[in-house]
Nucleic acid binder design. Structure first.
Lengths: 221, 221
DNA sequence: ATCCCATGTCGGGAATTACCTGGCAGGAAA
DNA sequence: TTTCCTGCCAGGTAATTCCCGACATGGGAT
C-alpha cells in the first residue's frame, strides 16, 4: 500500500478476455494484477483477501448481475474503484451502474490504451465514461421531463407491474398470466391498464417493444 | 511459408480481446499474429495481403455477419483454417458456421490454453468444437426426426411465414399485421395457422419463445 | 401431362380475449 | 387524516382469434 503500484483485480467470465487484460496491464510499469475471478462469489472472496485498488468488472457474470456485485463491493470496501467493462451499450445499464457507485464505464470495443488511460484517470479520482456513451447520456439528461419520465418508468413500475409487463411481452394472454401468478383475469387486466397508462402505450406490440428496449426478455423463464 | 511458424490473423471488433489474443499467441514460440481487423472489410483485404494459415474470427462483427465472411474467405482461399471464437451458445450458429467450412468453434468463455490447443489441433487438420457445445450437438443429431425437424423448421418456413412469425412475436394483432403487409386479416390468420401447424405450437407466447430462441427479434423495425 | 401439395389469398360464424367503467381495501406519503 | 397508489375484482361490450371451410398458383413427383 505504501508503494504507488496500482493493484488491480479482474472479474470477467471469459478467461481469454481476462488474459488479455492481464497482459495489457502487466505491460504497464506501475500496475499489477493481483487477482482474477470469473464469478461474483469468487470475486468477493478475493476482494476481501487481496484488497485491490481497482476492479475491472464485466457486467454479464454467470451467477448474478454485476450491478448487485457493485453494490456489495461498495458496502464492503467503499474506497475501491470500479471500472465497468462491458459490451452493453444500453442506456439503462450505465445509469444503474453509475448510480451504484462505479467509477467508470468502458465498452469492450474500446482500445486497450483507452483502458489504461481510464485506469489512471479513475485512480486520480476522475470518473470515466466511454465516449460513445456520453452522447446518449447527454440526450438523456438534456431531454425535458416528458420522455425522461418514460425512460424512468421502468423504475416507477411496481414489481407486480413489471412482472406482468414481461409476461404480456412474452405473448401470454391475460388468462395465462392470471394462472401463472394466481390471481383473477380481471386483476391482470387492471394491472395492464395501469401499465399502459404509465407508459402511455396502447398496443400489445408496445409491450414487446418496451421489454425489448429494456432487455427484459432475453431467453429465460 | 517454408518455416513452420503458424501465421495467425485475428478478426474481432473488440480491441481488448484482440490484444489479449495477440499476447496469448505471441507467448507461444511457434505462432505469430500477422494481422488484426475489426471488421469484415478490413479482414478480407488483410487476408489477401498476408495470407494467414489460420483466422480467429468473432462472429458478431459490425459490418456484416461472420457467416458471410466465412463464405467469402473460403471462396478466396479455401486452404485457410478458420477458428470461430464467439459468445454465442445458440445451436443455430454453430451449425451454420460449420456448414460454411469453419474448422473450429470455441466460446469466449474458454480458457486461453484451450485456444492454443485448438489452434494446434486445427493445424493438424482436426476439427475443434467447444466441449460445452458438443453436448448440444449430440442432442441435435441423436434426436429422431421429430424434434430435429422442428429445429430445422426456421428454414422450412416460407419467407412470408417467417415475416408473420416475427410480427406476431412482436405483439402485433392479426389486424395490424394485415395492414402492414397489405393483405386481409383472414390471410394473416391462415398463415398463422400454418405456422402453428409446422412448429407444432398453440399459444402466442410460443411465437415469442421461438423468435427469441432464434434471435429473430433484437431491437429493430 | 397430370396429380399432389405447399403456399398465398380470402370468408362466415363461433369462441375466446381484451377493453372500459367502476368499486373496494390496505398501506405509504403528505 | 386525507390522499394517492397499489393490488384486487365484476359486468358488459368491443375486438381478436380460432375453426371450419374455399380457390388459384406453381413446383415436384409420377
Amino acid at each position: 500500500m505504501s508503494d504507488d503500484t496500482i493493484k488491480i483485480m479482474i472479474i470477467d467470465d471469459h478467461p481469454i478476455v481476462r488474459k488479455g487484460l492481464h497482459l495489457v496491464i502487466k505491460a504497464q510499469g506501475d500496475m499489477e494484477v493481483i487477482g482474477e475471478a470469473g464469478s461474483v462469489r469468487e470475486g468477493i472472496t478475493i476482494v476481501q483477501e487481496k484488497k485491490p485498488d481497482l476492479i475491472i468488472l464485466d457486467l454479464t457474470l454467470p451467477d448474478c448481475s454485476g450491478i448487485e456485485f457493485i453494490k456489495k463491493i461498495k458496502q464492503l470496501s467503499p474506497q475501491v474503484k470500479i471500472l465497468v467493462l462491458t459490451i452493453h451499450e444500453e442506456e439503462d445499464y450505465i445509469q444503474k451502474v453509475l448510480l451504484e457507485g462505479a467509477n467508470g464505464y468502458l465498452l469492450k470495443k474500446a482500445a486497450d490504451d483507452e483502458l489504461i488511460l481510464a485506469i489512471r484517470a479513475i485512480m486520480r479520482g476522475e470518473m470515466v465514461v466511454d465516449s460513445s456513451m456520453t452522447k446518449k447520456l447527454w440526450q438523456r439528461y438534456l431531454q425535458p421531463a416528458e420522455k425522461t419520465q418514460k425512460s424512468k418508468a421502468k423504475d416507477m413500475l411496481s414489481k407486480r407491474q413489471k412482472e406482468i409487463l414481461i409476461l404480456v411481452a412474452r405473448g401470454f394472454t391475460d388468462k395465462q398470466i392470471a394462472e401463472k401468478i394466481h390471481v383473477s383475469v380481471k386483476t391482470v387486466e387492471s394491472h395492464k391498464a395501469r401499465i399502459k397508462e404509465k407508459l402511455d402505450i396502447v398496443h400489445r406490440s408496445e409491450f414487446v417493444e418496451y421489454a425489448l428496449e429494456h432487455n427484459l426478455l432475453d431467453l429465460h423463464g
